[in-house]
Each structure stands twice: as C-alpha cells, then as structure tokens.
C-alpha cells in the first residue's frame, strides 16, 4: 500500500464522515431547540422517516430534488404539529407520544410506499451532486474533505452557529431556554408557553424532516423500509452526549459519523472481520457514552414535564 493510497483512503473516510454527519446533524440541532424548550421529543426517528419518504415520493414524481427537499420539510412540520398537539395541548406523556409517532410513521410510510410501487418497478431518482466551493476546495487534503460536499451539508454545518446565536444571543432564545427551565416565569409574564413550545417543536421537526430528506436525496436513489435505521435515535443520543450545547452536539454527531464512515470503508481497508461489528459500533458507542456521562447538569430542568398552569 503506497502512501498516496493511504492518504486517499483517509480523505475518503473523513469526507464520508462529513456527509454522513449531515442528516443526523440537522435532526440533532433541530431537536436541541425542541428539548431546550422542555419537550422530550422521542419521535425524531419517525419524523426523519417521514421526511425521507416524502422526499422520495416527490423526487420520483416530479423529478425535482429541491421540491423534494421542500416537501420533506413540510412533512416534518406536519408530524411536528401532531407531536406538539399531543404533548403541549393534550399533555400526553412525551415519551409515549414519541413512541406512538415512530410506530405511526413506520406503518404509514410502508403502506404508502407499497401503494406507490404497486405493480411496477420501483422508480428511482438522481440525487444531489457535490458543489465544490471555488478556491477553498483547491486546498490540498482539507479542501477535498470539507469543501467538496453537497450544498445542504454546508447548510447543516452553518446551522450549528446559527442555532447557537439564536439560543444564546436573542430574546427569543432566552425565552425558549426559559421554557425548559421554568415555564411558569414566562406564563406569569403573560407570554404564551404553548405558542413557544409549538414553535420549538415545529422548528425541530422541520429540521429533522430536512435531515430525512437529505438522507434520501444525498445517499441513495430509492426508498427502503426503515431507511433511517436508528439515525433519529442517534440524534437524541448526540444531544445527551453533547450536554444540550451546540458545540457538544456537533462533536457527538461527528464521532458517530466517523464510526459509520469507517464501517463503510472496511472492505477497502482490507480488514477481515464481520462487517456487522462496524455497523454496530455507533450503537455500542452511544451506550458506552451514556454510561460514562451519568446525569448532566445542563439538562433542562423541566425537560419532558408537561406544563400545567
């Protein structure tokens, strides 16, 4: 193995990491906002799956990937609306709501998918191409990894500082963080708790739907049942592991993405072990991560507790 070959593999693994991180990052950063508002949304996996299916449906039906992205965001918003209605208005237990959403979407997407492809070959679509950033992408090594990616990937990474600014430097963010710590304070000030929680859930769900859409359009040309394969759950783990802070969440997402990227390169690397071991690594890593963390001080105080006046 030449040195050049080794460097090429390293670039490929790291560029893969950035790409694989994209959908999880969208979901995790969106969910960060939802959870800081006190909603323990366990329906991320389902929301993401709905985004992915909608993106597939629109991409194959219209041929436009950007329309598909938009549709995935709208689908995410609709699922978010159900989640918000159940957790904020009906005050159903947050965990149970999320589980219900995941099961509902798994059933619905499978049904719609079977209906859609009934009696014909499964239609495919052309996904996203890379958009190299002029100048920056010419930097050796780093340019190839960071600046020759899909357009939405740049957006996902830009969302991290944007959400940080939103949460910590705006009045809206202050109120939102207050929802997770002490919603009564907002209520007494005469500010609507429900409206803000709806907004936070919708924001998270739109981002998650977008992540699902990217998963569909950026990696594949056809839909499969359970295509999200636990990525929504990884987003939640990243949130806990990242201590509900934008920087930490980003780091945790990158760790998961690196493990998955290595798994996809096992054959190239010539390692002779069952590929299932590498597929299992992100899930194993999440359990170990959570074991090492124990209770976190940054977890919003009122996370998952329905607010009663």
């Amino acid at each position: 193995m030449g040195e050049l070959f080794q460097e090429a593999i390293l670039v490929s693994i790291l560029a893969g990491m950035i790409r694989i991180a994209t959908p999880i990052l969208f979901a995790a950063i969106g969910e960060l906002v939802t959870q800081r508002a006190g909603i323990w949304n366990m329906g991320v996996e389902g929301t993401m799956l709905m985004g992915a299916f909608t993106a597939y449906f629109i991409a194959t039906a219209t041929g436009s990937v950007w329309l598909a992205v938009l549709a995935a965001m709208i689908a995410g918003a609709l699922v978010g609306l159900i989640i918000a209605f159940m957790t904020v208005t009906m005050r159903v237990d947050h965990f149970i709501t999320g589980l219900g959403i995941n099961l509902l979407v798994a059933g619905l997407t499978l049904y719609w998918f079977r209906m859609y492809i009934k009696g014909r070959a499964q239609p495919t679509f052309d996904g996203f191409d890379n958009v190299a950033i002029p100048g920056l992408s010419a930097i050796p090594f780093i340019g190839e990894i960071l600046f020759d990616q899909r357009l939405l990937t740049y957006m996902a990474f830009a969302a991290v500082p944007a959400v940080w600014y939103l949460l910590y430097r705006t009045r809206w963010g202050l109120e939102l963080r207050c929802l997770g710590e002490n919603p009564k304070a907002l209520d007494i000030k005469g500010l609507s708790v429900s409206a803000r929680q709806y907004a936070a859930v919708l924001f998270g769900s739109v981002m998650t739907g977008l992540g699902g859409g990217f998963l569909m359009l950026g990696f594949s040309d056809r839909f499969l049942a359970d295509i999200t394969a636990g990525r929504g759950w990884l987003a939640i783990v990243a949130l806990i592991a990242g201590n509900w802070m934008p920087r930490g969440v980003l780091a945790a997402v990158l760790v998961f993405a690196l493990l998955e990227s290595v798994a996809t390169h096992v054959q190239v690397l010539g390692i002779d072990v069952p590929h299932q071991i590498f597929l299992a690594l992100p899930y194993l890593a999440s359990i170990l991560l959570l074991m090492g963390l124990r209770r976190q001080s940054r977890q919003p105080q009122r996370l998952g507790i329905p607010y009663f006046r």
Binding site: I82, M86, V92, I96, L104, G107
Partner: peptide, 25 residues
C-alpha cells in the same frame, strides 16, 4: 382488494395515537 398488507401497521399506529388522546380526555 389489492390493498397492501402494511395497512395494518398503519392502522395500529393511528389507533395508538387516538387511544392515547382518549386516555387523556
């Protein structure tokens, strides 16, 4: 009726959510 068998898991999901709301109501 040429309806995919996966209608049943979809129905299960729908009924679970309506039952959750009923439980609260």
């Amino acid at each position: 009726a040429q309806v995919p068998a996966s209608l049943v898991p979809a129905m299960e999901g729908i009924l679970m959510l309506t039952f959750l709301c009923a439980g609260v109501a």
